[in-house]
Simulated scan of single mutants.
Amino acid sequence: MIVDCAHYVDGRRQGEGPLQLDEAAALCETEGFVWLGLFEPEAHELTLVRKTFELHELAVEDAQTFHMRPKVETYDEGVRLVILRTARYDDAAEEVEFGEISVFLAPKFVITVRQGVASELHGARLRLEQRPELLATGTTGVLWAILDQVVDGYTPVVAGLEHDIDEIEATVFSGSAAPTERIYSLRREATDFYRAVHPLLNVVSTVERTAAEPVLQPYLRDVHDHLTLINEEVAAQRDLLGTVLEANLSVISVEQTRVGVRQNATMERLTVLATVFLPLTFITGFFGQNFSWLVDHIGGFWPFVVYGIGGLVIPLVLLLLWLRRGDSRRSR
């Protein structure tokens, strides 16, 4: 879908409303340049754009593929393809959404192909149109505006990830276990974000090195400095999440150890109780048998005391002595 298509001369937009593709291609032969913006175009739309502006088929194929790393490619026709990864933090879902912008750059035209909701460029076009001195530098000025907006969009993502990491960190280092899957999810998002930010340093350095317009050099350096700071922050977040993950696993291990200790203590009490009642059960079961000798020879009060009470007390005393002996051996 064509979002906007405009012709710029001496830093000023010519005419009102978007241009048609044949009209835009014809204006490329005149003064100034054309900026064509596409959002998630269909295959036939990209084919039409490729034929109209005589783009290399491999460049168009790259624009249709969702890349994991930003890059710069130069083709024989003098067209440069710059691929950027965009990012946006979703507060409701507490996750990072990624998009992509493919920029076809030539002296007479700029074609931007956006993929994903996180790749909005309307603000960059409006801001650049309000800076005619930068817009007058040509297509490189447009590339600077796009880079500047993409890098500025990284700042809220860094802040959103930082907030989530602070919450997880506070939970873990307070001694409570945090959901491990949440930490893994945050680390995956930070890794994907790092893959979008870090390779862009090389892209910005290449643009800064090859830009022929002196007026753009300070602005490109500013983008590079801002991007360097974000790259350092994202790398630090990845390292911190690794530390938090290890600490969380340690907290989980401590909790499991505590549960194991409580279970062992419970089993020890049950074992002692079973050990106490085992000889008592044997004595009462033995003397509860209805053998004739037991019935005829054990009668009266003293046989009851000797065989009945004594038969219960003596095993308990022997068991107590055995348990104390075992405790004294373990204490050594």
Rank of each mutant, 00 (worst) to 15 (best):
F291R: 09
A235L: 07
V72R: 00
W35E: 09
V172S: 06
W35N: 05
L46I: 13
R221C: 02
Q289V: 15
V103A: 05
E120V: 13
D239P: 10
D225I: 10
G78A: 07
T171S: 08
E133M: 03
I309G: 08
E233F: 13
E95I: 06
I314S: 06
H7W: 15
C28Q: 10
P199H: 02
T228V: 05
G288Y: 15
V197K: 00
S250F: 07
G308H: 07
F33N: 01
I314A: 13
L319M: 14
V150R: 00
R13E: 13
T271G: 12
V96S: 00
V197G: 01
A93R: 13
F109W: 07
L186E: 02
R332G: 14
L227G: 00
L201P: 01
D90M: 04
L229N: 08
Y75W: 12
L105H: 08
V259W: 04
V49K: 02
Q289M: 15
A43P: 12
R85G: 01
T281Q: 13
T257P: 06
Y75M: 08
L201F: 07
P41E: 14
V9H: 01
R12V: 14
R262I: 12
Q217C: 00
I298H: 11
T47I: 08
V142F: 11
V113D: 06
G37P: 03
A170V: 04
V96G: 00
A235H: 08
G141L: 01
L280T: 08
A59D: 06
A87P: 09
N202F: 04
G310M: 07
G141D: 02
T180I: 14
L321E: 11
R329E: 08
L321C: 11
V234T: 05
A265G: 02
F98M: 04
A170R: 05
T206A: 01
T257Y: 15
V3T: 12
E29S: 09
V113C: 09
L270V: 14
E133Y: 03
Q289K: 12
N231A: 15
Q20T: 13
K71M: 02
G242P: 12
F39S: 14
I252W: 04
K51N: 14
H122S: 15
V110Y: 08
R114T: 09
Q263D: 07
V261H: 09
P279I: 07
G78W: 05
E189C: 03
L321G: 07
A93I: 10
M267D: 14
F173H: 02
R329D: 03
F39R: 11
S250I: 04
Q115V: 10
